[in-house]
């Protein structure tokens, strides 16, 4: 926990970006939507899917930056050896992010029905993008490209993805039936984590 605290402290301004999005930008957008359309669940669903998943890898990527890009990566690798994996860090930070989403959804449950279906979908979408970012980071030994890739993916597929099989986002999400796509997304996310971990074990050492 001490290491996690220091890693997040090292992010400084960047630590607060997801918090600003979750607790300021998103509520403001929801308020604007409420004013214009009333308590419309589909618009809430679109706003949440636009904001939440794309910021899921944010903390992980900024924390991994020191392990992948900094001049101190050699030292960090020697000391961490079998104690710590980048996968472990990524998952812990994803869980932390999900806990923040939970707070927002607890508040949203007073306004909207069906929020928990959306919550489940957002957890899985966040996991998918975190896993994709982790895999790319391990593969490219770089954190900038994964960050850009996950943002671009989210924007393109959320705004113009339609019914593409590559799209993890869903319209509506008002009942269990609208979660049909999610088991597949979850499976792909797990595969990404696994491949990323194998890549981390093989490539990290040789990249020094």
């Amino acid at each position: 926990m001490r290491r996690l605290y220091l890693e997040l402290k090292n992010l400084r301004f960047y630590y607060f970006v997801p918090l600003v999005v979750l607790f300021i930008l998103l509520p403001l957008t929801v308020l604007a939507s409420l004013k214009q359309y009333g308590p419309s669940f589909p618009s809430f669903s679109v706003i949440c899917q636009l904001y939440f998943p794309c910021f899921a890898p944010w903390w992980s990527l900024f924390v991994l930056k020191d392990y992948l890009n900094s001049p101190g990566k050699e030292l960090l690798f020697v000391y961490k050896q079998n104690r710590d994996s980048l996968l472990g860090k990524t998952i812990i930070l994803w869980v932390l992010y999900v806990l923040h989403i939970l707070v927002v959804f607890f508040a949203a449950s007073f306004i909207y029905d069906f929020v928990w279906f959306l919550f489940i979908a957002l957890i899985i979408q966040s996991m998918f993008l975190t896993a994709l970012a982790y895999l790319l980071a391990a593969l490219l030994q770089n954190t900038f490209v994964p960050l850009i890739t996950t943002f671009t993916y989210s924007l393109i597929f959320m705004l113009a993805g339609g019914y593409s099989p590559l799209n993890i986002f869903t319209q509506g999400l008002s009942d269990a039936g609208s979660l049909n796509k999610m088991p597949g997304v979850l499976l792909v996310a797990v595969v990404f984590f696994y491949v990323g971990y194998q890549t981390e074990k093989r490539l990290y050492k040789t990249s020094i």
């Binding site: 001490r2 290491r3 220091l6 890693e7 402290k9 090292n10 992010l11 400084r12 020191d66 900094s70 001049p71 101190g72 990566k73 050699e74 030292l75 960090l76 020697v78 000391y79 961490k80 104690r83 710590d84």
Partner: peptide, 26 residues
Amino acid sequence: LGYLPQAFGMFQELTLYEMTDYICSL
């Protein structure tokens, strides 16, 4: 093991004390 590689420098935004504290934890 105490190790000093040729290239050193990470956690630029932490204080020297905090960076050393991180290494203590590792």
